[in-house]
Amino acid sequence: MKFQPALDEGVLLRRYKRFLADVRLPSGEQITIHCPNTGSMKACLAEGSPCWFSTSDNAKRKYPNTWEIATTPAGDLAGVNTGRANALVVEAIEHGVITELQGYETLKTEVRYGEERSRIDIFLSGAADRVDCYVEVKNVTLCEDAGQGLFPDSVSTRGSKHLRELALMVEQGHRAVLLFCVQHSGIERVSAAAEIDPVYAATLKEVVDKGVEVYAYQADLSAQEIVLRRPLPVIV
């Protein structure tokens, strides 16, 4: 995913009211930008550190700038715009990066499915040698010491619901995949954040035992582009 023009850089002053952040520009001017991440952003916030943001040409937006990349307290880069995750995974599938999801003729997004009125992020179909595949994408930016990536960064009943829906698809004879989109330069492996959301961690283990597949792919991040590059191990 290339940014045209490239992202602008500033210094993060603070994040507040969940959806807002104050940033100081190189000129010294202070602006308020939109924060597109509703989570806790735990371990992603370092006031006084470099951050990068995009600019919309939509004149109706109150805050035309959107926070895209943060510098963590450890000095790593983290992609904080969770709305980018699905597009990054779609792009990686179409470019053959995610080898586990190749061979399908049709890719659709936001398809309604399941018994809990969910929408699947990516639906793959049309493969001659395999069944249809339901792909749920989760953005990972929480990193503990020694490169341990964790999801979720706060309690997520919605995330557990999605896991149950994936297990149901397996029971019905389909493929079901949980794909961790790792937008963090310091993460080396991914697992469920059992201390934050023990229900999610237990549910993940249950659905994997039922046949849900779990993969993680890490992005390279810069002001010019964010792109998924490499698989990471997942520890269930």
Rank of each mutant, 00 (worst) to 15 (best):
V170E: 02
R158E: 14
N81R: 13
H174P: 01
V90E: 14
T141K: 11
Q148T: 02
A194T: 00
R230M: 13
C143Q: 15
E47I: 04
D76W: 02
I31A: 01
V177R: 08
V11G: 05
V111Q: 13
Y200S: 09
D57W: 10
W67T: 00
K138F: 05
Q148A: 12
P233Y: 05
L168W: 11
G126W: 03
H95P: 00
Y16H: 13
G48R: 07
L142I: 00
S118N: 00
E100N: 01
S27A: 12
D8F: 11
V182W: 04
N65I: 05
G173P: 03
K2W: 04
Y215W: 10
S125T: 00
V190F: 04
C51K: 01
L178Y: 09
G186L: 12
Y63E: 10
H174G: 04
G173Y: 06
V137P: 03
T157V: 13
R164G: 15
G126K: 05
W67Y: 01
Q224A: 14
R24H: 06
L124Q: 13
A223G: 00
E188R: 05
R164C: 13
A219Q: 08
F151S: 07
Q102N: 05
A59W: 08
R229H: 14
R117I: 02
I69Y: 08
A74E: 15
V97M: 02
V212P: 13
C44G: 08
T82Y: 11
A127N: 13
C143H: 03
V190C: 07
T203R: 12
L178R: 14
M169T: 10
P36V: 06
L25E: 12
K60W: 08
C143P: 06
H95C: 04
L77H: 15
F151C: 09
F3W: 14
M41I: 06
T38A: 08
G103H: 07
R117W: 02
K17F: 08
G211H: 09
V131Q: 12
V214K: 08
E116P: 00
V155M: 12
A193I: 02
L150N: 06
F123Q: 04
H162R: 12
Y16E: 07
N81D: 14
R15P: 07
M41R: 11
T55H: 06
E213Q: 15
C133G: 08
V11N: 07
L221N: 13
F19A: 11
S118L: 00
V227C: 14
Y215E: 04
L204F: 02
A219F: 01
G79F: 08
D209C: 09
C143R: 15
E206R: 02
A176L: 15
V177Y: 08
F180W: 01
